[in-house]
Structure formats: structure tokens, C-alpha cells
Computed example of a mutant assay.
Amino acid sequence: MDNESTGAAVPAGVIPPHIQDTDQLLDPVLFSNDNRNFKLKTVPAFSIHLLISSVISCVGIGLAALWPAERRCDAYFIMLYLRATFWVITYLFDHFVKIQHQKLRMSGYHDFHRETSMQKGIPLQVVSLWNSMLLAVQAMIHHYYGVSFWEHCAAGWLSPISYVTAFSVAENVVLAIFHGCYIDKVRKFNKANLAPDVLRGTDQVGGSLGLMQPGGDTAELLEKQADLIAYLRDHTHRLNLSMHKMQTNVRPVRTPQIP
């Protein structure tokens, strides 16, 4: 068969490129190859965050145990500076994790997003809570000791550096538990290499997302419907961009006129 636009012959059994492009655009938008290869890239961030917390705890233990009595006040303020810096690091870390989980949700993995929605925010909550309690303890120490605070800095194991170190070690234990559970979940999720929930049918309740069995959770159904709408809207936007790009790349071809 001859190609009407160019007049060139097309071998039998070969589909013209423009027909292939059209068929590709007509494929269901849900079957995106990018979604099947999605990996949640938060394990290194959680590992580094836990490492920093462990280092701060070890520094506090070393300062409390090894520094001489006349320098224990300096050790106390060093730990306070480290605690403040650690909160800033945790805030940036939390922002990065939220971006990655937003990509997870927009890629169609709503079940895992809901499963880890609480765990991803625990580090910032724990560090903020610990710093608030530490601030309260510091205020009580200064209020109780008053002008004699510098004398009590060298009070052995009851010095302020010991309090700060104890808070840091306790915080590190809590973070290790939550970080370990989260990292294990994410590694299993990445290793499974699952398709989006829509393709696996996990977002369906009672056989259809618009139907619900008697006694079902209405709030959960509405939440899943909202997730699915956001997912479809994102893929529709991607499809529109692909169509626009294809239209801009199409060159006008003159059809030969028959004399």
C-alpha cells in the first residue's frame, strides 16, 4: 500500500510511524510504564537522620564522661547548639520526605501512602517534643540554680550536661525504633515492585469504587475516591502534555495533487 502523504511504498505488515504514535496515545493512561518502576527514595534519608542522632548522643556521652569539671559548662552549651542544629536538620529532612511521599501518592500507591502517612512525620514530632521538654528542663535549671548556675555545671553526674545527654540518648532510642520499622516497610515495598493500586484493584470496595457493601467505612471510601481522582487528574495532565508535544513536532506534509 502506498503512503498517501509521501507517495512512498510501505512494506506489508509494517505499521506506519504516525499510526503507531496514534495508537500509543489511545492506550489507557493508567498503564504508564513509569509507575511500575517507582521506588520510594527515603531509606538513605532515614538512615542518615538516625546516624546523626546517634552521633549527637555519643558526643554527649563523651563530653559528660571525659571532659574535666572546669569545662562541663562548655560541654553543656555545645550540646544545646547540637540540639538546635539537629532540629533544623530534622525540619529539612521532613520536607524532603513529604515530597517523596507526595510523588508516591501521585504515582497511584495510595494504600502504602496511607499506611506510612503517620510514620513519615514522627521524626519531626519526636525531635520537636524532645527539644520542648529540654527547654522546660533548662528553664527550671536556670530558675532553680539562679546566679549559682556556673557552680553547679561541675556537679558531677547531676550536672546539666548529664540531663541533656540523657534526653538525647532516650530520643535516639525512640527514633531507632520508629526508623527501623519505617525502613523495613519501605525496603519491602521497593523490593516488591508493585503496580499502582488502580491496576491491582486494591482501591476497589465491594467490586467497584463507586459502590460500598453494607457496613462499610464511608470515610475510607471517600478518601480512596479522592486519591483516585487525584491520580487520574495527574495522568490526564501528563497525557495532555504528551499530545501537545506530539502536535508541536508534527511537520505539515503536502499531499501530492493528481493532475
Rank of each mutant, 00 (worst) to 15 (best):
D2Q: 13
D2N: 10
N3Q: 09
E4H: 09
S5P: 00
V10K: 05
A12K: 09
A12Q: 08
A12I: 06
I15S: 05
I15Y: 02
P17W: 05
H18P: 03
Q20S: 09
L26M: 10
L26D: 04
L26A: 07
D27W: 02
D27P: 00
F31H: 09
F31I: 13
N37E: 11
N37V: 10
K39I: 10
P44C: 07
P44V: 00
L50C: 05
I52D: 01
S53C: 04
S54P: 00
I56W: 00
I56D: 07
I56L: 06
V59Q: 02
I61E: 08
R71V: 06
R72G: 02
Y76Q: 01
I78H: 00
I78Q: 02
R83C: 14
R83Q: 15
A84Y: 10
F86M: 01
W87I: 11
W87G: 08
T90R: 08
L92M: 12
D94A: 15
H95R: 15
Q102N: 13
Q102W: 07
R105Q: 12
H110F: 15
D111P: 01
E115K: 15
T116D: 09
T116V: 14
M118Q: 11
G121A: 12
Q125C: 04
V126P: 01
V126G: 03
L129H: 06
W130Y: 07
N131Y: 06
S132D: 10
M133G: 09
L134V: 04
V137S: 14
M140Y: 10
H142V: 11
H143A: 14
Y144I: 03
Y144R: 11
V147K: 08
A154Q: 07
A154D: 04
G156V: 00
L158M: 12
S159A: 15
P160I: 04
I161W: 01
I161Q: 02
I161C: 06
I161T: 12
S162W: 10
Y163M: 12
Y163F: 15
T165M: 05
A166E: 08
A166R: 07
F167M: 14
V169T: 11
A170F: 12
V173C: 13
V173G: 01
L175T: 08
H179T: 15
C181T: 04
Y182T: 15
I183H: 06
D184N: 13
K185D: 14
K185Q: 15
R187L: 15
K188I: 11
F189G: 13
F189E: 09
N190W: 06
V198P: 00
D203S: 02
Q204N: 08
G206Y: 02
G207Y: 00
G210E: 13
L211Y: 10
Q213C: 08
G215C: 14
G216L: 12
T218S: 13
A219Y: 12
L221W: 06
Q225V: 04
A226P: 00
D227S: 11
I229N: 06
I229W: 04
I229G: 03
R233H: 12
D234S: 14
D234N: 15
T236I: 08
H237Y: 07
R238E: 03
R238W: 05
N240I: 05
L241I: 09
L241Y: 02
H244A: 10
K245T: 12
K245R: 02
N249I: 07
V253S: 03
Q257S: 14
P259G: 14
